[in-house]
């Protein structure tokens, strides 16, 4: 009971503190996807214009544009920069002290905040791709939106455990933001934000789609824009589940090991 009570409070805390900086918040959730998808739209238009082909890998320009719009939106959701940096900062600066002395775990404290932040951001920034898709008549299967978002939220848990493992490195090494950046860049390719995974040549194509990372961007986006069907969505659920199980098995011992090394600098 007390578990749910405090986690509901963390969830709310994330929303309250982020709304405190309204301007940054709006920019993060709306401004960034607009610019990114603008660049992508220009890019795909140029590719189609210069090749003169009607389709690339079986999909037409509209289909790529729809992908670009939704992918830049989805990529905003399924990435963890802010809270990962904050968590690393807590360990490095000794800010962790104030969390450790309370009857709660660091993991739940940040997971609940992360989900709270992400879910609200999602609801706000969802308006952009929806508006663009409707206005420009891009291919879109509306009934698939809800299951796709469900998959994305499930992916967030997986993503968070990855962040948590990165954070445990901070007990042993200083200034590990580099790991974080490297990981997020790798996800940029593996998730399908960079390019739709289905235009990669085989065997990379199948490998990338079957890894859990594809559930961050490619699977939900491809599913709602009609590039793939429900079987891919289910395989996403499965691969995330396997991923969560595997990462959890490492995460806890890593955390315990880190805490033994912790010196609580600062205060």
């Amino acid at each position: 009971m007390s578990f749910w009570r405090r986690n509901r409070a963390f969830f709310k805390l994330a929303i309250v503190t982020n709304l405190e900086y309204r301007f940054n918040y709006i920019l993060d959730s709306i401004g960034q996807p607009i610019v990114t998808s603008g660049v992508e739209l220009a890019f795909w238009s140029a590719i189609f214009a210069s090749t003169g082909q009607q389709t690339i890998a079986g999909f037409d320009l509209h289909s790529y544009m729809a992908y670009a719009i939704w992918a830049s939106f989805m990529a905003r959701i399924s990435v963890n920069w802010m809270y990962e940096f904050r968590m690393i900062e807590e360990v490095e600066s000794g800010g962790l002290n104030t969390l450790l002395v309370r009857p709660m775990s660091f993991f739940e404290y940040y997971l609940s905040q992360f989900l709270g932040y992400k879910i609200v951001t999602t609801l706000i920034s969802l308006t952009i791709p929806v508006a663009v898709t409707v206005a420009l008549g891009f291919p879109m299967i509306w009934s698939r939106l809800l299951p796709a978002m469900g998959l994305a939220v499930y992916y967030l848990v997986f993503l968070f455990i990855m962040s948590f493992i990165v954070v445990t490195f901070a007990f042993h090494l200083t200034r590990i933001q580099g790991i974080s950046v490297a990981k997020n860049l790798a996800l940029w390719i593996f998730s399908g934000e960079l390019l739709p995974l289905d235009i990669f040549p085989e065997p990379y194509r199948s490998a990338l789609i079957h890894l859990p990372f594809s559930s961050g961007v490619f699977i939900p986006v491809a599913y709602i824009t009609g590039r793939v069907d429900a079987t891919v969505l289910y395989s996403g659920v499965l691969s995330i589940s396997v991923g969560i199980a595997a990462l959890s098995a490492i995460a806890y011992p890593m955390w315990k090991w880190g805490l033994r090394r912790y010196v609580g600098t600062g205060a």
């Binding site: 009971m1 007390s2 009570r5 405090r6 509901r8 409070a9 805390l13 309250v16 503190t17 405190e20 900086y21 000794g94 800010g95 002290n97 104030t98 309370r102 009857p103 709660m104 600062g266 205060a267």
Partner: peptide, 23 residues
């Protein structure tokens, strides 16, 4: 030398969060 309450919210909000944490 450290802040333990939350920086961006009022003490009252921090206290109700603490009440949730300590049940």
């Amino acid at each position: 030398q450290k802040n333990q309450l939350w920086w961006d919210i009022s003490p009252n909000d921090s206290y109700s969060l603490l009440a949730d944490i300590y049940d």
